[in-house]
Design a protein around this nucleic acid. Structure first.
Lengths: 219, 219
DNA sequence: AAAATAATTTAGATTTGTCTAAAATAATAT
DNA sequence: ATATTATTTTAGACAAATCTAAATTATTTT
């Protein structure tokens, strides 16, 4: 079955809202999509009819199995495109959301398969969020951007936001790789640089730009 | 100004129809877009109001300056995406049209600039059609695919449909490059291979796959 | 040049997605 | 437990994009 952009946006909003708090409410969706509660109700009825939603009036709602599958596919497309935009088109990771919001509605399973292969099956997008595979499966453990890691918390480097040769050279020089255990010693507000300590070595400082491309899993 | 997908599709159809025959008619557009003449008339009025069309009822119509600019931008996006799909995602050149029809409506000038740079500013798409630059300028001389070149007609190799290292290796080995003068000696229907003659050398045969990636300008 | 045919436009309807205002239901406070 | 407040749904309207059928204009034929 085929879905409109608006239907897809509602499904995606419900998916994200379901993650925090179990049952989703009309107002939550309206808030997220910058629309009115009445419009959401209209859409809920349609989505229920299409089998994407468990919905009884006034009772809140959740995605059905089919709805979840659709949501994961949209999320997959969104995150793959973000990965492409950042790692191949040289966008900053903070500039890609809007564009991915459009690209995620392009409807071609083959395109997404081939894009996934071209990108070499990345498992995390540039924000550190996991990318569902074609069956909707994805890594559970949420990684966080190094800039968001609390001070003194040990964490393991789990992904880098780009594959550029300049970045890889820098990481090699600093002896940072996937699997490296580190912690943040201090954050400097002036330039958002961060002092980190890798294993038992002496602490050193890295720039905001570098920290932003590193993702870690708190241990 | 922003335009709907439907508006853009009408503008693009009119652009293409204008190329053959000067003034465009309602029925032509309806035929091309698989819609009804009445629907086209409705759209014509809207496009005229937006300044994209020179249109008087019953008199046919043409694109205004603004309309032409918009059309060229859509064509540019379409062809850049086709180039990407064929040369980076390994699509066949005959599989990409539908997908590019969707991608061409993504609205982000920066995306297209960056895509263009990533592709290294290609001047022809995988079908041999010229790609307008950001000012709408493009090569005039239409190149043709080598598979479509008439026998015994001298032509100059003007573009290759892909930049893959395997292809470049093969071309180096066969001593074919941009600027090479050649002619088709014979076409073999069995496997669509083609016998060509490069300058004064002995003729040799190339596969259909290779011929399809080569574009030439008849001299 | 009048009649017949073809093309185009208009009028009015339909679908999708949205809205406002009012009604119905649920949650909260006293 | 009832009144008040908040949330959700319904009813009815609107804009965009399309359609069918009828009316209008242009073109072609004789």
């Amino acid at each position: 079955m085929q879905f409109s952009t608006s239907e897809e946006n509602h499904i995606k909003a419900i998916y994200h809202l379901q993650h925090t708090g179990d049952v989703v409410t009309t107002n939550e969706v309206a808030g997220r999509l910058q629309t009115k509660a009445a419009s959401v109700t209209d859409m809920l009825k349609k989505l229920k009819n299409k089998g994407l939603l468990n919905y009884e009036p006034y009772q809140g709602f959740t995605l059905s199995k089919e709805g979840k599958k659709l949501a994961l596919n949209i999320v997959r497309k969104h995150r793959l495109w973000e990965y492409f935009l950042v790692n191949h088109l040289q966008f900053g990771w903070d500039e890609v959301h809007e564009i991915a919001e459009e690209l995620e509605h392009i409807n071609s399973p083959l395109l997404i398969e081939k894009l996934d292969a071209f990108l070499q099956f990345p498992r995390f997008d540039p924000h550190g969020d996991p990318i569902p595979d074609s069956n909707g499966k994805m890594e559970i453990s949420k990684q966080v951007n190094l800039t968001d890691l609390d001070t003194d918390l040990k964490a393991e480097v789990s992904a880098v936001g780009s594959q550029s040769s300049e970045l890889l050279e820098l990481l090699r020089h600093k002896k940072i790789a996937i699997g490296t255990i580190l912690k943040v010693v201090k954050k400097f507000g002036f330039d958002n640089s961060i002092e980190i300590k890798v294993e038992k070595n002496a602490p050193f400082t890295i720039s905001q730009q570098l920290a932003q491309t590193l993702f870690v899993k708190p241990l």
